Lab assay of single mutants.
Amino acid sequence: MGMPNRKYADGEVVMGRWPGSVLYYEVQVTSYDDASHLYTVKYKDGTELALKESDIRLQS
């Protein structure tokens, strides 16, 4: 078993793309699913969504 190939840690605050949009919002990573390679993130309004790594970026 190798290390999970994840870029962002639980609790890390990053920018997540809103689905169907080009806009990124501040989100907190809450979990990562090794099987689906999706991150569960929480937006400031409390919305929780699963995002692909390509829809997440570090805060500038």
Rank of each mutant, 00 (worst) to 15 (best):
D45S: 05
T40G: 06
I56K: 00
V13T: 11
Q28R: 11
Y25Q: 09
N5F: 07
Y43R: 09
K52A: 12
G11R: 03
E48M: 12
D45K: 02
L49W: 15
D33Y: 02
E48I: 14
Q59M: 14
S60P: 13
M1I: 15
V14Q: 01
A35F: 12
V13I: 15
R17I: 07
G11N: 07
A35K: 13
Y32G: 00
Q59F: 12
K42S: 08
S54W: 07
R17G: 02
D55W: 05
D45G: 04
K7W: 03
G16V: 14
N5Y: 08
L58E: 14
L51F: 02
R6A: 04
M3F: 12
M1R: 13
G2H: 07
Y32E: 00
E48T: 13
I56S: 00
K52R: 13
D45M: 02
R17C: 04
P19G: 06
D34A: 08
G11T: 03
N5E: 15
E53D: 08
W18H: 07
K42C: 09
E48F: 12
T47C: 12
R17M: 07
G46Y: 03
I56F: 03
Q59V: 14
Y24H: 04
T40Q: 10
M3A: 15
T47W: 07
G11I: 02
N5K: 06
K52I: 08
V29D: 00
P19I: 03
A50C: 13
K7M: 10
V13E: 05
G11L: 05
P4I: 11
A50P: 08
M1G: 15
R6V: 03
G16T: 08
Y39F: 02
T47D: 03
D45Q: 03
L58R: 14
Y39S: 01
G46N: 06
Y24T: 02
V14W: 01
V14S: 01
G16C: 12
A35D: 12
K52F: 11
Q28T: 15
L38G: 03
A35E: 13
P4C: 12
G2I: 06
P4L: 12
I56R: 01
N5P: 14
R6M: 03
V14C: 04
Q59C: 15
A50F: 13
H37Y: 10
L38D: 07
A9Y: 10
E26V: 11
Y25G: 04
D55Q: 07
E26I: 10
V14R: 01
M1T: 15
K7T: 08
K7I: 11
K44N: 08
A35G: 10
I56C: 02
A50R: 14
A9F: 10
T30E: 10
M1C: 15
A35Q: 13
K7L: 12
E53Q: 06
G16P: 01
D10M: 06
D10V: 09
M1K: 15
